[in-house]
Design a protein around this nucleic acid. Structure first.
Lengths: 131, 131
DNA sequence: CGGAATCCCAAAAGATACTG
DNA sequence: CAGTATCTTTTGGGATTCCG
């Protein structure tokens, strides 16, 4: 590789580093991406989200939803029925994360599969017993 | 959309949710992705990484690198020179995250641009609430 | 139902200093 | 250079209770 190319490559990766940093700033914590993922199938109510995103407490869910609202990823919609119905849905901008989520999800599934196959190998080679 | 399609869509999104969860499990914390991003330009030494990934303390960098090693994303290579030279590099498997990192980085840059332009707008048109 | 308020703990992360 | 060690602070997050 000639030096010019190397320099360009470095510069582009610096941009990428900054970009990753920016992205992680708004997506920090272990819940936000999961909530956004859950909302990809359509609007959801508070309790629904709590069920889908297993393990999250109402306090955290509330907090995360507020932050997602502030960043304009999520819209909180209030219907004046009795009793009041509240739904959270992805904004248009929120869907701009679709590609990232999709790709990350696929990578995660592959990773899990890889872990499993490694675990099996160890089971076999260690004591000759397979599951 | 007919119901069959809807069911399929739901199922696929559940898989995606699980995938995202798996991915976040190994990429948790705010440093791992940055370190991996930094290593995309080639092997780096400890101090180099500390300089590139701004703000990380040696303690954290050390800890994160160990975890990345355990997950086989990163290889720690020791050269028996004087003094000993140590370099960290992406494994083959580590590069499997390239797509994700690239996409996330691009999204982050766009997001930052969006934030900036919004800030400007507010400065200019300091009127009511936006939709 | 859709949260808010409070209390509390453990883990994460920062600062600083030190070592081979 | 390549980390450890130690200490302190901050944050994340669980449990529980309560409110409209």
């Amino acid at each position: 590789m000639i030096e010019q190319e190397e320099i360009v490559h470095q510069a582009e990766c610096n941009r990428c580093l900054a970009g990753v940093q920016d992205a992680m700033y708004v997506l920090s914590g272990k819940w936000k991406l999961l909530i956004l993922t859950a909302l990809r199938t359509g609007p959801k109510r508070f309790k629904e989200l709590q069920r889908i995103v297993k393990g999250i407490t109402p306090k955290l869910l509330s907090k995360e939803l507020k932050e997602l609202e502030l960043n304009e990823f999520v819209l909180r919609r209030v219907y004046a029925s009795q009793p009041v119905l509240i739904e959270y849905e992805l904004t248009n901008y929120g869907t701009s994360l679709d590609g990232v989520i999709q790709l990350l999800g696929e990578w995660g599934l592959n990773h899990r599969a890889r872990i499993y196959s490694h675990a099996k190998e160890e089971l076999v080679t260690d004591d000759g017993i397979a599951a």
